[in-house]
Computed example of a mutant assay.
Amino acid sequence: MVAFEDVARTVLDENRYVVLGTADAGGKPWVSPVFYTLSGYRELIWMSSPEALHSRNLAERADVSLVVFDSRVTPGDGMAVYMCGVAAEVTGEAVAAVAAAYGDAALPRGGRRVRIEEVTGDGIYRMYRATVREHWILDPDSRPDGRAVVTL
């Protein structure tokens, strides 16, 4: 029997995009796929324009929901990892380290290195980080809502 934690790690390790759910100050929701890398299983990192709606929403409200899944599988065969947490733009001295870690992790997944001038000053992108409070996967045997919380 495969442990739920192993399923969650595999899904997070083998996929490239997270669907990021944000909301504006008034609560209007927005979802957006973003290419991500992991810093452990409790942090997801991505690079986005600060003008993107999800980035503007994060400036107003840090709470996020996230889901990673493989959309290429046959319906009924897929697994997903659902998450909730908080996210924000990475600022200050942490930007260089986060950008380097993102680039190192992105290369083997089809991404690229980030030049620091792209994500600071007049650069058109910024680095963002989500800190995950809870992970779960769907399990029809879990009651009452079908969610099985996993600890990563």
Rank of each mutant, 00 (worst) to 15 (best):
23 A>Y: 01
99 A>L: 04
99 A>C: 05
135 H>W: 10
133 R>Q: 13
73 V>E: 09
67 V>F: 06
108 P>L: 02
142 S>F: 12
35 F>C: 02
86 V>E: 10
109 R>K: 13
56 R>N: 04
103 G>K: 01
47 M>H: 04
77 D>H: 12
39 S>A: 13
139 D>E: 14
149 V>M: 07
118 E>A: 12
74 T>H: 12
116 I>W: 02
141 D>Y: 12
16 R>L: 13
121 G>P: 08
77 D>S: 15
58 L>H: 01
41 Y>M: 09
67 V>S: 10
101 A>E: 11
34 V>Y: 00
76 G>V: 11
84 C>N: 15
100 A>T: 09
137 I>H: 14
81 V>Y: 08
145 D>F: 15
94 A>S: 10
137 I>W: 14
61 R>M: 00
77 D>F: 15
45 I>Q: 03
87 A>D: 00
68 V>W: 03
108 P>R: 03
28 K>S: 14
134 E>P: 02
70 D>K: 02
78 G>T: 03
73 V>Q: 11
21 G>P: 00
24 D>H: 00
112 R>A: 13
106 A>H: 00
55 S>R: 02
77 D>Y: 13
13 D>W: 01
9 R>I: 03
118 E>F: 07
33 P>W: 01
140 P>G: 11
55 S>L: 05
98 V>A: 01
125 Y>T: 10
58 L>K: 01
5 E>A: 15
59 A>G: 11
70 D>Q: 01
75 P>N: 11
57 N>V: 02
26 G>R: 12
4 F>P: 15
126 R>G: 07
40 G>I: 01
104 D>H: 08
121 G>L: 05
6 D>S: 15
47 M>S: 14
5 E>H: 12
122 D>N: 13
90 V>F: 04
49 S>P: 10
37 T>G: 01
131 T>L: 03
57 N>G: 05
142 S>N: 12
60 E>T: 08
3 A>R: 14
43 E>C: 07
31 V>I: 13
105 A>Q: 06
10 T>P: 07
151 T>M: 10
34 V>C: 09
82 Y>L: 14
83 M>L: 07
122 D>Y: 12
136 W>G: 07
77 D>E: 15
112 R>K: 11
96 A>Y: 02
24 D>M: 04
86 V>D: 04
128 Y>E: 10
60 E>M: 11
70 D>N: 08
150 V>D: 07
